[in-house]
Protein backbone atom coordinates (compact mmCIF):
# COMPACT_ATOMS: atom_id res chain seq x y z
CA UNK A 1 0.00 0.00 0.00
CA UNK A 2 1.44 3.35 -1.01
CA UNK A 3 1.80 6.31 1.28
CA UNK A 4 -0.83 8.28 -0.58
CA UNK A 5 -3.57 5.70 -0.17
CA UNK A 6 -2.85 5.45 3.54
CA UNK A 7 -3.12 9.18 3.74
CA UNK A 8 -6.45 9.14 1.92
CA UNK A 9 -7.82 6.40 4.10
CA UNK A 10 -6.89 8.38 7.14
CA UNK A 11 -8.83 11.27 5.72
CA UNK A 12 -11.91 9.22 5.03
CA UNK A 13 -12.12 7.47 8.36
CA UNK A 14 -10.40 9.70 10.88
CA UNK A 15 -11.85 7.67 13.74
CA UNK A 16 -9.67 4.73 12.79
CA UNK A 17 -6.41 6.64 13.04
CA UNK A 18 -4.55 5.59 16.17
CA UNK A 19 -4.44 8.34 18.72
CA UNK A 20 -0.88 8.24 20.16
CA UNK A 21 -2.22 9.06 23.60
CA UNK A 22 -4.53 6.05 23.39
CA UNK A 23 -1.58 3.81 22.52
CA UNK A 24 0.34 5.12 25.53
CA UNK A 25 -2.64 4.46 27.75
CA UNK A 26 -2.96 0.93 26.42
CA UNK A 27 0.71 0.23 27.05
CA UNK A 28 0.36 1.60 30.56
CA UNK A 29 -2.70 -0.56 31.15
CA UNK A 30 -0.99 -3.72 29.94
CA UNK A 31 2.08 -2.97 32.07
CA UNK A 32 0.02 -2.40 35.20
CA UNK A 33 -2.00 -5.55 34.51
CA UNK A 34 1.20 -7.58 34.08
CA UNK A 35 2.64 -6.27 37.33
CA UNK A 36 -0.59 -7.18 39.09
CA UNK A 37 -0.93 -10.59 37.57
CA UNK A 38 2.72 -11.65 38.06
CA UNK A 39 2.56 -12.53 41.79
CA UNK A 40 -0.77 -14.21 41.24
CA UNK A 41 0.69 -16.42 38.51
CA UNK A 42 3.73 -17.11 40.62
CA UNK A 43 1.68 -18.12 43.65
CA UNK A 44 -0.73 -20.29 41.69
CA UNK A 45 2.05 -22.09 39.83
CA UNK A 46 4.11 -22.62 42.96
CA UNK A 47 1.07 -23.95 44.81
CA UNK A 48 0.84 -26.73 42.26
CA UNK A 49 4.50 -27.73 42.28
CA UNK A 50 6.24 -30.22 44.50
CA UNK A 51 9.03 -28.81 46.67
CA UNK A 52 11.75 -30.22 44.41
CA UNK A 53 10.07 -28.70 41.33
CA UNK A 54 9.97 -25.35 43.06
CA UNK A 55 13.73 -25.48 43.53
CA UNK A 56 14.56 -26.64 40.03
CA UNK A 57 12.16 -24.75 37.77
CA UNK A 58 11.69 -21.05 37.12
CA UNK A 59 9.03 -19.30 39.20
CA UNK A 60 6.92 -18.53 36.15
CA UNK A 61 7.16 -21.87 34.39
CA UNK A 62 3.89 -23.81 34.60
CA UNK A 63 3.95 -26.97 36.76
CA UNK A 64 4.60 -30.17 34.80
CA UNK A 65 2.60 -32.57 36.96
CA UNK A 66 0.22 -30.96 39.39
CA UNK A 67 0.90 -31.61 43.07
CA UNK A 68 -2.65 -31.59 44.42
CA UNK A 69 -1.35 -33.00 47.69
CA UNK A 70 -0.02 -29.51 48.53
CA UNK A 71 -3.59 -28.40 49.09
CA UNK A 72 -4.72 -31.32 51.20
CA UNK A 73 -1.47 -31.23 53.17
CA UNK A 74 -1.69 -27.53 53.92
CA UNK A 75 -5.39 -27.87 54.77
CA UNK A 76 -4.64 -30.50 57.40
CA UNK A 77 -1.45 -29.07 58.87
CA UNK A 78 -2.75 -25.54 59.06
CA UNK A 79 -5.99 -26.55 60.76
CA UNK A 80 -7.73 -24.83 57.86
CA UNK A 81 -11.07 -26.53 58.33
CA UNK A 82 -11.36 -24.65 61.59
CA UNK A 83 -10.09 -21.24 60.53
CA UNK A 84 -11.97 -21.48 57.25
CA UNK A 85 -15.25 -22.11 59.08
CA UNK A 86 -14.62 -19.21 61.46
CA UNK A 87 -13.93 -16.87 58.55
CA UNK A 88 -17.03 -18.06 56.72
CA UNK A 89 -19.26 -17.51 59.74
CA UNK A 90 -17.89 -14.07 60.55
CA UNK A 91 -17.93 -12.88 56.94
CA UNK A 92 -21.31 -14.38 56.15
CA UNK A 93 -22.89 -12.57 59.09
CA UNK A 94 -20.97 -9.32 58.98
CA UNK A 95 -21.04 -8.48 55.27
CA UNK A 96 -24.79 -8.75 54.54
CA UNK A 97 -25.75 -7.38 57.94
CA UNK A 98 -23.39 -4.43 57.65
CA UNK A 99 -24.58 -3.64 54.15
CA UNK A 100 -28.22 -3.80 55.22
CA UNK A 101 -27.65 -1.52 58.21
CA UNK A 102 -25.66 0.91 56.07
CA UNK A 103 -28.27 0.96 53.33
CA UNK A 104 -31.12 1.58 55.75
CA UNK A 105 -29.19 4.28 57.59
CA UNK A 106 -28.21 5.91 54.30
CA UNK A 107 -31.84 5.86 53.13
CA UNK A 108 -33.07 7.43 56.35
CA UNK A 109 -30.42 10.12 56.20
CA UNK A 110 -31.05 10.83 52.53
CA UNK A 111 -34.84 10.63 52.32
CA UNK A 112 -36.57 10.95 55.68
CA UNK A 113 -36.70 14.38 57.20
CA UNK A 114 -35.06 14.03 60.59
CA UNK A 115 -34.57 16.80 63.06
CA UNK A 116 -30.94 15.94 63.66
CA UNK A 117 -30.32 14.41 60.22
CA UNK A 118 -27.34 16.54 59.27
CA UNK A 119 -25.70 16.14 62.63
CA UNK A 120 -26.23 12.38 62.55
CA UNK A 121 -24.68 12.16 59.11
CA UNK A 122 -21.60 14.13 60.16
CA UNK A 123 -21.39 11.98 63.27
CA UNK A 124 -21.50 8.75 61.29
CA UNK A 125 -19.01 10.02 58.73
CA UNK A 126 -16.68 11.05 61.51
CA UNK A 127 -16.42 7.35 62.27
CA UNK A 128 -14.93 6.74 58.83
CA UNK A 129 -12.10 9.13 59.54
CA UNK A 130 -10.66 7.37 62.59
CA UNK A 131 -7.91 4.91 61.67
CA UNK A 132 -8.83 1.73 63.49
CA UNK A 133 -5.20 0.96 64.38
CA UNK A 134 -5.20 3.69 67.02
CA UNK A 135 -8.35 2.14 68.42
CA UNK A 136 -6.99 -1.37 68.83
CA UNK A 137 -5.98 -1.09 72.49
CA UNK A 138 -9.18 0.61 73.72
CA UNK A 139 -11.14 -1.77 71.52
CA UNK A 140 -9.55 -4.74 73.25
CA UNK A 141 -10.38 -3.26 76.66
CA UNK A 142 -13.97 -2.64 75.64
CA UNK A 143 -14.57 -6.06 74.11
CA UNK A 144 -12.82 -7.68 77.04
CA UNK A 145 -14.96 -5.83 79.57
CA UNK A 146 -18.04 -7.10 77.72
CA UNK A 147 -16.63 -10.61 78.01
CA UNK A 148 -16.69 -11.04 74.24
CA UNK A 149 -13.04 -11.91 73.57
CA UNK A 150 -12.84 -15.14 71.54
CA UNK A 151 -16.46 -14.95 70.41
CA UNK A 152 -17.85 -14.38 66.93
CA UNK A 153 -19.97 -11.52 68.11
CA UNK A 154 -16.94 -9.89 69.73
CA UNK A 155 -15.36 -9.58 66.28
CA UNK A 156 -18.48 -8.94 64.25
CA UNK A 157 -19.58 -5.92 66.29
CA UNK A 158 -16.29 -4.00 65.87
CA UNK A 159 -16.19 -4.99 62.20
CA UNK A 160 -19.67 -3.50 61.78
CA UNK A 161 -18.71 -0.35 63.67
CA UNK A 162 -15.70 0.27 61.47
CA UNK A 163 -17.31 -0.83 58.20
CA UNK A 164 -20.67 0.95 58.35
CA UNK A 165 -19.55 4.62 58.21
CA UNK A 166 -17.77 4.25 54.90
CA UNK A 167 -20.68 2.37 53.35
CA UNK A 168 -23.17 4.93 54.65
CA UNK A 169 -21.04 7.63 53.09
CA UNK A 170 -21.08 5.95 49.67
CA UNK A 171 -24.75 4.91 49.74
CA UNK A 172 -25.93 8.25 51.09
CA UNK A 173 -24.26 9.96 48.16
CA UNK A 174 -25.90 7.53 45.78
CA UNK A 175 -29.37 7.78 47.34
CA UNK A 176 -29.20 11.56 47.37
CA UNK A 177 -28.65 11.48 43.62
CA UNK A 178 -31.82 9.43 43.02
CA UNK A 179 -34.45 11.90 41.76
CA UNK A 180 -36.65 12.72 44.72
CA UNK A 181 -39.74 12.40 42.55
CA UNK A 182 -39.09 8.67 42.46
CA UNK A 183 -39.65 8.23 46.17
CA UNK A 184 -42.40 10.82 46.15
CA UNK A 185 -44.24 8.97 43.41
CA UNK A 186 -44.00 5.79 45.46
CA UNK A 187 -45.19 7.54 48.62
CA UNK A 188 -48.21 8.85 46.69
CA UNK A 189 -48.74 5.35 45.32
CA UNK A 190 -49.24 4.32 48.92
CA UNK A 191 -45.84 2.93 49.80
CA UNK A 192 -44.35 3.25 53.26
CA UNK A 193 -40.75 4.36 53.62
CA UNK A 194 -39.77 0.77 54.15
CA UNK A 195 -41.48 -0.27 50.92
CA UNK A 196 -39.82 2.58 49.04
CA UNK A 197 -36.51 1.43 50.41
CA UNK A 198 -37.01 -2.22 49.58
CA UNK A 199 -38.87 -1.98 46.28
CA UNK A 200 -37.31 1.11 44.71
CA UNK A 201 -33.99 1.98 46.30
CA UNK A 202 -32.51 -1.47 46.83
CA UNK A 203 -33.11 -2.59 43.23
CA UNK A 204 -31.72 0.56 41.65
CA UNK A 205 -28.68 0.60 43.91
CA UNK A 206 -27.82 -3.01 43.07
CA UNK A 207 -24.64 -2.01 41.21
CA UNK A 208 -23.38 0.03 44.16
CA UNK A 209 -24.40 -2.64 46.63
CA UNK A 210 -22.57 -5.28 44.58
CA UNK A 211 -19.43 -3.16 44.51
CA UNK A 212 -19.63 -2.50 48.23
CA UNK A 213 -20.29 -6.16 48.88
CA UNK A 214 -17.18 -7.20 47.00
CA UNK A 215 -15.02 -4.61 48.74
CA UNK A 216 -16.43 -5.43 52.14
CA UNK A 217 -16.16 -9.16 51.60
CA UNK A 218 -12.49 -8.88 50.68
CA UNK A 219 -11.77 -6.49 53.56
CA UNK A 220 -13.54 -8.68 56.11
CA UNK A 221 -12.17 -11.94 54.76
CA UNK A 222 -8.61 -10.61 54.88
CA UNK A 223 -8.89 -8.60 58.09
CA UNK A 224 -5.91 -9.29 60.29
CA UNK A 225 -5.12 -6.73 62.99
CA UNK A 226 -8.44 -6.65 64.84
CA UNK A 227 -8.83 -10.41 64.62
CA UNK A 228 -5.33 -10.83 66.05
CA UNK A 229 -6.21 -8.66 69.05
CA UNK A 230 -9.73 -9.95 69.67
CA UNK A 231 -9.26 -13.66 68.96
CA UNK A 232 -6.76 -15.20 71.33
CA UNK A 233 -7.92 -18.80 71.23
CA UNK A 234 -6.45 -20.73 68.31
CA UNK A 235 -9.80 -22.42 67.68
CA UNK A 236 -11.44 -19.06 67.05
CA UNK A 237 -8.84 -17.85 64.56
CA UNK A 238 -9.80 -16.64 61.13
CA UNK A 239 -7.99 -17.56 57.91
CA UNK A 240 -5.44 -14.72 57.87
CA UNK A 241 -4.36 -15.63 61.42
CA UNK A 242 -4.15 -19.30 60.52
CA UNK A 243 -2.19 -18.45 57.40
CA UNK A 244 0.31 -16.39 59.37
CA UNK A 245 0.81 -19.15 61.89
CA UNK A 246 1.21 -21.65 59.04
CA UNK A 247 3.78 -19.40 57.41
CA UNK A 248 5.75 -19.24 60.64
CA UNK A 249 5.85 -23.00 61.00
CA UNK A 250 6.26 -24.21 57.42
CA UNK A 251 8.01 -21.35 55.71
CA UNK A 252 10.22 -23.64 53.61
CA UNK A 253 7.53 -25.92 52.21
CA UNK A 254 6.87 -23.49 49.39
CA UNK A 255 4.31 -25.60 47.62
CA UNK A 256 2.08 -25.99 50.65
CA UNK A 257 2.53 -22.40 51.75
CA UNK A 258 1.39 -21.13 48.37
CA UNK A 259 -1.41 -23.67 48.32
CA UNK A 260 -2.57 -22.20 51.63
CA UNK A 261 -2.45 -18.71 50.16
CA UNK A 262 -4.46 -19.81 47.13
CA UNK A 263 -7.09 -21.41 49.33
CA UNK A 264 -7.34 -18.20 51.36
CA UNK A 265 -7.72 -15.98 48.34
CA UNK A 266 -9.99 -18.23 46.30
CA UNK A 267 -13.31 -17.41 48.07
CA UNK A 268 -12.74 -13.70 47.51
CA UNK A 269 -12.11 -14.34 43.83
CA UNK A 270 -15.27 -16.43 43.58
CA UNK A 271 -17.35 -13.76 45.30
CA UNK A 272 -15.89 -11.18 42.97
CA UNK A 273 -16.74 -13.26 39.92
CA UNK A 274 -20.30 -13.80 41.11
CA UNK A 275 -21.10 -10.19 41.92
CA UNK A 276 -19.06 -8.24 39.40
CA UNK A 277 -21.60 -8.86 36.68
CA UNK A 278 -24.21 -6.94 38.69
CA UNK A 279 -22.17 -3.86 38.98
CA UNK A 280 -20.82 -3.99 35.47
CA UNK A 281 -24.29 -4.45 33.96
CA UNK A 282 -25.73 -1.89 36.36
CA UNK A 283 -23.18 0.75 35.49
CA UNK A 284 -23.84 0.39 31.79
CA UNK A 285 -27.63 0.30 31.81
CA UNK A 286 -28.09 3.75 33.34
CA UNK A 287 -30.32 2.35 36.04
CA UNK A 288 -31.34 5.60 37.64
CA UNK A 289 -31.91 7.82 34.67
CA UNK A 290 -34.13 5.03 33.28
Amino acid sequence: MSATTTFEEDNITPARRRDPLLVVLWVALVTVAAIWVAPFVFITFTAMKSNSDVMTTSAFSPPTDIAWENFSGAWKKGNFSNTFLNSVIITAVKVPLGLLISAMAAYALARIRLRWGRFLLVFVLFGAMIPFQVMLAPLFTLVNSLGLIDTYIGVILPYLAFGVPYQVFILHGFFRAVPKELSEAALIDGASHFTVFRRIFLPISLPVLAALLILDFVATWNEFAMALVLLQNKNMWTLPLGLMSFQGQFSNSYGQLNAAIVMTVLPAVIVYLIFQRYFVSGLTSGAVKG
Binding site: P179, E181, E184, A185, I204, A287
Partner: peptide, 11 residues
Protein backbone atom coordinates in the same frame (compact mmCIF):
# COMPACT_ATOMS: atom_id res chain seq x y z
CA UNK B 1 -49.61 12.76 40.65
CA UNK B 2 -47.74 12.90 37.36
CA UNK B 3 -44.31 14.47 37.55
CA UNK B 4 -42.41 16.46 34.96
CA UNK B 5 -39.68 13.81 34.76
CA UNK B 6 -42.30 11.02 34.97
CA UNK B 7 -40.53 9.33 37.92
CA UNK B 8 -41.08 5.84 36.54
CA UNK B 9 -39.58 3.05 38.61
CA UNK B 10 -36.57 2.18 36.44
CA UNK B 11 -36.15 -1.46 37.37
Amino acid sequence: MVFQNYALYPQ
